[in-house]
């Protein structure tokens, strides 16, 4: 497998993981409501675990969304994917994404490292370690950065792929 295929694969796995995380959240929320309402025993973990899962799913899935061209773009000009201007504007957009990612990774990593070394936890019942929660920023944006570079490479070799239509929609 080439590097491009590896990155594509990782993004896809991360994206699917993110999708199932949301299902897991739905299940734990429902569990919480049932045990709280019918058995009067609210859990101490559902709120915290589900918001952590939400943050993870959001940033973990970002690269997958980019790969599938699902990010929302204002479509005013350069509709034709074959033109040079479109390729240039697309590359510019990807470079902007790379820059944002680099900032998020650079500062997200140093924050994570600092909190990890100090052994910080959340202030809640669970005392979730910060290394497990804060790492989603640099991992998610790192992956998005790699995927952007891959897309950049794709534009000038294969061409601009169409936005994948949602499977089976209409």
């Amino acid at each position: 497998m080439s590097i491009v295929q590896v990155v594509d694969k990782i993004s896809e796995v991360a994206g699917k993981l993110a999708a199932w995380l949301f299902v897991l959240i739905a299940l734990s929320i429902s569990y919480e409501v049932v045990v709280r309402y019918f058995f009067n025993r609210p859990t101490i973990w559902v709120d915290e675990v589900s918001t952590i899962a939400q943050v993870w799913a959001t940033y973990l899935g970002a690269a997958y969304i980019l790969k599938r061209r699902k990010l929302i773009v204002v479509e005013l000009v350069f509709h034709d994917t074959m033109t040079l201007t479109r390729k240039i504007s697309e590359s510019f957009a990807l470079l902007v994404i790379v820059c944002v990612c680099l900032i998020a990774v650079r500062y997200g990593y140093s924050e994570w490292l600092d909190k990890t070394l100090k052994g910080a936890t959340s202030a809640s019942f669970l005392a979730t370690p910060k290394w497990a929660t804060l790492s989603c920023i640099w991992i998610g944006f790192g992956l998005l950065c790699l995927q952007s570079i891959v897309e950049l490479w794709r534009i000038w070799t294969v061409g601009i792929p169409d936005s994948e239509k949602s499977l089976g929609a209409h």
């Binding site: 709280r36 609210p42 101490i44």
Partner: peptide, 19 residues
């Protein structure tokens, strides 16, 4: 709204939720 207040509620026999 805090870990320790939850322990207090548990000690009182109630079921705490953090909010």
């Amino acid at each position: 709204f805090g870990r320790l207040l939850g322990w207090t509620v548990e000690a009182l026999g109630g079921a705490p939720t953090l909010m």
